[in-house]
Amino acid sequence: DENEERIRAFALYKGIDPEKARELWERGEINKDDEEKAWREYK
């Protein structure tokens, strides 16, 4: 689903483990601007 892809995109963008990215996502600790930037680059 799209959230999974967004988490993966963010992990790649930040160079972090996707599981770590998922934890940040679930806790609401992902910066929305960074997340959008990562998503645009990923697509």
Score class of each variant (00 low, 15 high):
residue 37 K to T: 11
residue 14 K to E: 04
residue 28 G to T: 02
residue 31 N to K: 08
residue 8 R to K: 14
residue 19 E to C: 14
residue 7 I to Y: 05
residue 40 R to V: 09
residue 34 D to F: 04
residue 23 E to H: 06
residue 31 N to A: 11
residue 43 K to Q: 13
residue 37 K to Q: 13
residue 14 K to W: 15
residue 17 D to S: 15
residue 32 K to W: 14
residue 24 L to M: 15
residue 14 K to S: 10
residue 9 A to Q: 05
residue 40 R to F: 13
residue 27 R to D: 04
residue 12 L to M: 13
residue 14 K to N: 08
residue 8 R to D: 03
residue 13 Y to I: 04
residue 22 R to S: 03
residue 26 E to K: 10
residue 3 N to Q: 14
residue 42 Y to C: 08
residue 12 L to A: 13
residue 32 K to S: 11
residue 26 E to H: 10
residue 36 E to V: 07
residue 12 L to W: 15
residue 15 G to N: 10
residue 41 E to C: 15
residue 4 E to R: 06
residue 39 W to S: 02
residue 17 D to P: 14
residue 32 K to A: 13
residue 19 E to M: 12
residue 21 A to P: 00
residue 23 E to V: 10
residue 36 E to H: 05
residue 8 R to L: 15
residue 25 W to Y: 14
residue 13 Y to D: 02
residue 1 D to G: 12
residue 21 A to F: 02
residue 17 D to R: 07
residue 11 A to R: 00
residue 40 R to Y: 13
residue 14 K to C: 15
residue 42 Y to P: 03
residue 42 Y to D: 03
residue 21 A to Y: 02
residue 43 K to H: 12
residue 39 W to T: 01
residue 35 E to W: 15
residue 37 K to N: 12
residue 37 K to C: 14
residue 38 A to G: 04
residue 16 I to M: 09
residue 43 K to Y: 10
residue 39 W to Y: 07
residue 43 K to I: 14
residue 22 R to M: 05
residue 35 E to M: 15
residue 6 R to K: 09
residue 28 G to L: 03
residue 7 I to E: 00
residue 8 R to F: 14
residue 16 I to K: 00
residue 20 K to M: 13
residue 15 G to D: 06
residue 25 W to L: 08
residue 15 G to P: 00
residue 38 A to D: 03
residue 5 E to F: 06
residue 11 A to N: 00
residue 1 D to F: 11
residue 33 D to T: 08
residue 10 F to E: 01
residue 14 K to M: 15
residue 39 W to F: 06
residue 13 Y to E: 03
residue 17 D to C: 15
residue 7 I to N: 01
residue 24 L to V: 03
residue 6 R to L: 10
residue 29 E to N: 06
residue 10 F to T: 02
residue 31 N to L: 09
residue 13 Y to T: 02
residue 38 A to M: 07
residue 15 G to W: 01
residue 30 I to C: 05
residue 16 I to W: 05
residue 10 F to N: 01
residue 21 A to K: 00
residue 40 R to E: 12
residue 16 I to L: 09
residue 28 G to W: 02
residue 7 I to F: 05
residue 16 I to T: 01
residue 4 E to Y: 10
residue 6 R to F: 14
residue 7 I to D: 01
residue 7 I to P: 00
residue 18 P to Y: 15
residue 2 E to A: 13
residue 14 K to D: 01
residue 27 R to Q: 09
residue 40 R to T: 11
residue 15 G to T: 01
residue 25 W to T: 00
residue 41 E to K: 13
residue 27 R to V: 04
residue 22 R to Q: 05
residue 30 I to V: 11
residue 39 W to A: 04
residue 24 L to Y: 05
residue 15 G to Q: 08
residue 12 L to H: 11
residue 32 K to D: 07
residue 4 E to P: 03
residue 33 D to E: 14
residue 8 R to T: 08
residue 40 R to H: 12
residue 25 W to S: 02
residue 34 D to N: 03
residue 15 G to E: 04
residue 21 A to V: 08
residue 24 L to C: 09
residue 13 Y to F: 12
residue 2 E to T: 13
residue 33 D to H: 08
residue 37 K to Y: 07
residue 8 R to Q: 10
residue 29 E to F: 08
residue 28 G to D: 04
residue 38 A to V: 04
residue 39 W to C: 07
residue 30 I to D: 01
residue 18 P to H: 13
residue 26 E to W: 10
residue 21 A to S: 04
residue 36 E to S: 06
residue 29 E to H: 06
residue 14 K to Q: 08
residue 3 N to E: 14
residue 32 K to E: 10
residue 18 P to Q: 13
residue 36 E to C: 14
residue 11 A to Y: 03
residue 12 L to E: 10
residue 37 K to V: 10
residue 28 G to A: 05
residue 33 D to R: 06
residue 6 R to G: 01
residue 34 D to L: 05
residue 16 I to Q: 00
residue 40 R to M: 14
residue 30 I to L: 06
residue 43 K to D: 06
residue 6 R to N: 02
residue 42 Y to K: 03
residue 27 R to W: 05
residue 27 R to H: 07
residue 41 E to R: 09
residue 7 I to K: 01
residue 3 N to H: 14
residue 19 E to N: 09
residue 4 E to H: 07
residue 14 K to L: 15
residue 3 N to L: 15
residue 11 A to S: 05
residue 27 R to F: 04
residue 42 Y to T: 04
residue 40 R to N: 13
residue 7 I to W: 12
residue 23 E to Q: 11
residue 27 R to I: 05
residue 5 E to I: 07
residue 29 E to C: 15
residue 37 K to H: 09
residue 35 E to Y: 15
residue 27 R to G: 06
residue 12 L to C: 15
residue 13 Y to S: 04
residue 39 W to H: 03
residue 32 K to I: 11
residue 20 K to A: 13
residue 10 F to W: 12
residue 13 Y to M: 07
residue 41 E to Q: 13
residue 19 E to K: 11
residue 36 E to Y: 07
residue 43 K to T: 13
residue 5 E to Q: 11
residue 18 P to G: 05
residue 25 W to R: 03
residue 19 E to R: 10
residue 31 N to M: 08
residue 8 R to I: 14
residue 1 D to S: 12
residue 4 E to T: 08
residue 29 E to D: 10
residue 9 A to N: 04
residue 6 R to E: 02
residue 23 E to N: 06
residue 10 F to P: 00
residue 35 E to F: 15
residue 9 A to P: 00
residue 6 R to W: 12
residue 2 E to M: 13
residue 26 E to D: 11
residue 33 D to K: 07
residue 16 I to D: 00
residue 18 P to K: 10
residue 1 D to V: 11
residue 20 K to Q: 14
residue 22 R to G: 01
residue 31 N to Y: 05
residue 36 E to W: 07
residue 23 E to L: 12
residue 8 R to Y: 14
residue 13 Y to L: 06
residue 10 F to K: 01
residue 41 E to V: 10
residue 10 F to V: 12
residue 20 K to C: 15
residue 18 P to N: 11
residue 36 E to L: 09
residue 9 A to V: 08
residue 29 E to L: 14
residue 13 Y to K: 02
residue 4 E to K: 05
residue 41 E to W: 15
residue 31 N to F: 06
residue 5 E to W: 09
residue 6 R to I: 08
residue 3 N to G: 08
residue 15 G to Y: 01
residue 34 D to M: 07
residue 30 I to R: 02
residue 38 A to S: 11
residue 10 F to H: 01
residue 2 E to V: 13
residue 33 D to Q: 10
residue 20 K to V: 14
residue 29 E to P: 02
residue 40 R to Q: 13
residue 40 R to L: 13
residue 1 D to N: 12
residue 6 R to D: 01
residue 6 R to A: 05
residue 26 E to N: 11
residue 17 D to L: 11
residue 41 E to I: 11
residue 8 R to M: 14
residue 42 Y to L: 05
residue 42 Y to I: 04
residue 16 I to P: 00
residue 4 E to D: 12
residue 19 E to Y: 08
